[in-house]
Structures are given as structure tokens and as C-alpha cells.
């Protein structure tokens, strides 16, 4: 049984490293990643699960880190944008001009990366379902669509939505 009844040290597995952090039980993962580990790539924006700017991967699945307690991440592999190195989706975001201010970009890239790993043959419907979890206020989503499509398999198996 894992209990955390007050602020204490916990060990998180972040980007392939074991890191000790001091967390309150009520601290969100987003807060701890940023304030304790300086991993500021994950962005605070709505802190309400509505915008996706704080998306990280937990065991490979996209999760909004503003709505996860740090203590819940114990025993799971956390990947933040800082843990992605020269991945195809990062290159595609540059090539396709898929960002402007860049504040939503980390969250979008993490979600896209997970999608491309979990469903490399995703069609339009799956892409849309996944990426509607993130908001971008600068682009009209056209370039983000091009970026994700460029890293997925060329011939989608699903019909277009």
C-alpha cells in the first residue's frame, strides 16, 4: 500500500531517470515536473483538463498532467517533451510550420507522438479523436494535421471521417 499523508520525498521515473522529488499529496504531476524538476516543457494553461498543453506520457499513454497527482505517477514511466529526442513528429512540426507561439506545442507533440507509436496506421477519424484533446489558439490546425499525417503510415486503413 502506497500512502502519502503529508509532504514527503517520492521517487518518480521521468524520461528514463529516477528522480527524487518533494511533493504534497495534493500536488499535481504538472506542478512537480515544473517546479521540482525544472521540466517546464509541460505547460500550465487551463489546469482544468480542457486544453492539453500539459500533456505528458504515462507508460506511453497521453495524460493531462494537471489532472494527475504526482503521487499517482509512482511506479509508472513518465515521459515529458524533454524526453523526446529528435523524434519524427518534432521534425515534422518544424517542417510543416505546425506552431506559432509554441505554448501548446509540447502537449500537441506528446499526444501526436503517442498516437504515432500506438496507432501508426491511424486514419482521419482516430487522428481527430485524439488531437481534439488539445487546443491551439494560433494556428487553424491545418499545419498540425499535415505534421501528424506526415509521420503516420501513408495509407490509412480507416475511412475518412
Amino acid at each position: 500500500m502506497v500512502n502519502l499523508v503529508k509532504m514527503d520525498l517520492i521517487e518518480l521515473a521521468v524520461n528514463g531517470e529516477k528522480r527524487l522529488v518533494m511533493a504534497r499529496p495534493a500536488d499535481t504531476l504538472l506542478h512537480v515536473l515544473r517546479e521540482q524538476l525544472g521540466l517546464t516543457g509541460s505547460k500550465p494553461s487551463c489546469k482544468n483538463g480542457d486544453c492539453g498543453a500539459c500533456t505528458v506520457l504515462i507508460d506511453g499513454q497521453p495524460i493531462k498532467s494537471c489532472l494527475m497527482l504526482a503521487v499517482e505517477a509512482l511506479g509508472h514511466e513518465i515521459t515529458t517533451i524533454e524526453g523526446l529526442k529528435d523524434s519524427p513528429i518534432q521534425r515534422a512540426f518544424i517542417d510543416k510550420f505546425a506552431f506559432q507561439c509554441g505554448y501548446c506545442t509540447s502537449g500537441f507533440i506528446m499526444n501526436c507522438h503517442a498516437l504515432s507509436v500506438i496507432h501508426p496506421d491511424a486514419g482521419d477519424e482516430t487522428i481527430r479523436e485524439w488531437l481534439q484533446s488539445n487546443l491551439c489558439r494560433c494556428t487553424g490546425y491545418e499545419e498540425i494535421t499535415e505534421a501528424i499525417k506526415s509521420v503516420l503510415a501513408q495509407e490509412p486503413k480507416e475511412n475518412n471521417g
Partner: peptide, 16 residues
């Protein structure tokens, strides 16, 4: 560009 796709871009909220 590189900073923005790697999470290294610094915004004012990131000033710690």
C-alpha cells in the same frame, strides 16, 4: 523552432 519543439523554449511562466 528547435526550442519550441523540444520544450526548451522559455516563456515568462517558466521563470523559476
Amino acid at each position: 523552432s528547435q526550442d519550441k519543439v523540444t520544450g526548451l523554449a522559455i516563456y515568462n511562466t517558466d521563470y523559476l
